[in-house]
Design a protein around this nucleic acid. Structure first.
Length: 449
RNA sequence: GCCGCUAUCGUCUAGGGGACUAGGACGCCGGAUUCUCAGUCCGGAAACCGGGGUUCGAAUCCCCGUAGCGGUACCA
């Protein structure tokens, strides 16, 4: 198989685009074939260098590689021109000076169920239209949907080149796919109705068509087309939100495709092994960040500590030093996204920032007495490691005659500033005896006044 | 308007005429884990869009309707 991913650089790479890229990549890797990256930049107004860079970045961050390209569609202009000339010469296409308004008027007269048919004009500066037969139908043999039939008469003689000679999307795509030897076109559903046009171009040019597979679109939680309003809608935003590339690949693969045994956690290698385009669903799927979070959490927890540390360090823009390593060790089982890590471990890297609400809730009644008792126990401790701290603190609640939380929460607030943190024994151990005692003393002092 | 696609729990899906009292996962609710939160474990509620057919039998096949979506540009 030879596939292509052909994004148009009109903005960041969206989640839908990322899934299309992933499916193409999976199909290519599964079949041992090739993946070509082609940038559809024939719209000079909207295509920018930054957007191209952004898409390339997003793809490599997702760890989706390609075998050929990126090929700029605009750079293939000579080929497009040659193909256009050939069609003009054979009479399959013709110049027509009709404007959009003219076409509209023509339809008002001839009925809406009939496509526009123009009259060849001897005007080299007019747009070029492709002749579409009145009879018959064009059939798209879709790998996912089966044969889809389109009556030819419902299509206009559509424009394939502007008055200035530059070609339009449906023409360029057909020519490029054919000339680049693409065997399988895997793309979004929104192109299904465009496919007959491309097939018509291919037919006029005498090129055999590739196989097509049209993927169902992705929608937002409200059932509407996915857009910026739905929160993290681009790969870049997902990255900033602290999701892992591997988790995103896993989740995206499941949006519109399911393993036959209903597996949910499927590592990429296994995805490559099991994925088949023909198994893709036909209905649009809704992007649900909750499930992504869950999958991401699983990947975060199952990562080897070394890798975890370097991923966290990169996300935070910090050096992966010993302290960070220790912090990761006690937070790994708690965070679902990279973004959740820092709030849980920040207290290990700087002065306490007290959450006044937590303070008021915890630092009352017997808190001073219990905290003082804990301080004493910790001060006398020989080995200030998690096991040692636990051995020292765990008998305390009983001996003081209170519930464990009454002892532990004041310590937590004293050392971390808040009522939520990693395990208290581990937190104390990582903070170290001196700093822990200093923070507890500061809290006790505040309690006295 | 015209052309086309789609339709199973809130969400992702399994199902491809009898194995369905419709299965799994996320989420949700309840319980357990005698340090918070998270995690983990256990349990629970929750769906075949509607109407006609075909058939001994339909979630599965056909038709109609409804709804959602896509296309209908000298955009991609």
């Amino acid at each position: 198989m030879r596939l292509r991913f052909a994004p148009s650089p009109t903005g960041a790479l969206h989640i839908g685009g990322a899934r299309t890229a992933l499916y193409n990549w999976l199909a290519a890797r599964h079949s041992g074939g090739e993946l070509v990256l082609r940038i559809e930049d024939t719209d000079r107004e909207r295509s920018t260098e930054e957007n191209v860079e952004q898409i390339l970045d997003a793809l490599s961050w997702l760890e989706l590689d390609w075998d050929e390209g990126p090929v700029s569609q605009a750079s293939r202009e000579p080929s497009h021109r040659a193909a256009l000339e050939a069609l003009l010469e054979s009479g399959a296409a013709y110049h027509d000076s009709a404007t959009a308004k003219d076409v509209e008027a023509w339809k008002a007269e001839h009925g809406a169920d009939r496509g526009y048919r123009g009259i060849p004009a001897d005007e080299p500066n007019a747009a070029v239209r492709l002749r579409v037969p009145d009879e018959g139908e064009t059939i798209v043999e879709d790998l996912i949907r089966g044969p889809v039939r389109f009556p030819n008469r419902s299509y206009d003689d559509f424009v394939i080149a502007r008055g200035d000679g530059s070609v339009l999307y449906n023409f360029a795509v057909a020519v490029d796919d054919a000339e680049m030897g693409i065997s399988d076109v895997v793309r979004g559903d929104d192109h299904l109705s465009n496919t007959p046009k491309q097939l018509l171009v291919l037919g006029a040019l005498g090129h055999p068509p590739p196989r097509y597979a049209h993927l169902p679109l992705l929608h937002g939680p409200d059932g509407r087309k996915l857009s910026k309003r739905h929160g993290a809608a681009s790969v870049q935003e997902l990255r900033e939100a602290g999701y892992l590339p591997a988790a995103i690949r896993n989740y995206l693969a499941l949006l519109g495709w399911g393993a036959d045994d209903d597996a949910t956690l499927i590592p990429t290698e296994e995805l490559v092994e099991r994925f088949r385009v023909t198994d893709v669903n036909r209905a649009a799927a809704i992007f649900d960040e909750k499930k992504l979070r869950w999958i991401n959490g699983r990947y975060m927890r199952e990562m080897p500590l070394d890798e975890y540390v370097s991923v966290v360090a990169r996300h935070l823009g910090r050096e992966p030093d010993e302290r960070l390593r220790e912090a990761c060790g006690i937070v790994q089982e708690k965070a679902q996204t990279l973004a959740e890590v820092w709030p849980l471990i920040a207290f290990l890297f700087g002065p306490v920032e007290t959450d006044e609400k937590a303070w008021r809730k915890v630092m009352k009644d017997e808190a001073p007495r219990l905290l003082a008792a804990a301080r004493k126990a910790l001060a006398d401790l020989d080995s200030f490691d998690p096991a040692g701290v636990e051995a020292e603190l765990s008998p305390l609640p009983d001996s003081l005659g209170v519930k464990p939380g009454r002892v532990y929460q004041p310590i937590r607030v004293a050392i971390s500033g808040g009522s939520v943190s990693p395990g208290i024994f581990e937190s104390l151990a990582v903070l170290g005896r001196d700093e822990s005692l200093a923070r507890i003393d500061a809290a006790l002092e505040r309690l006295e006044t």
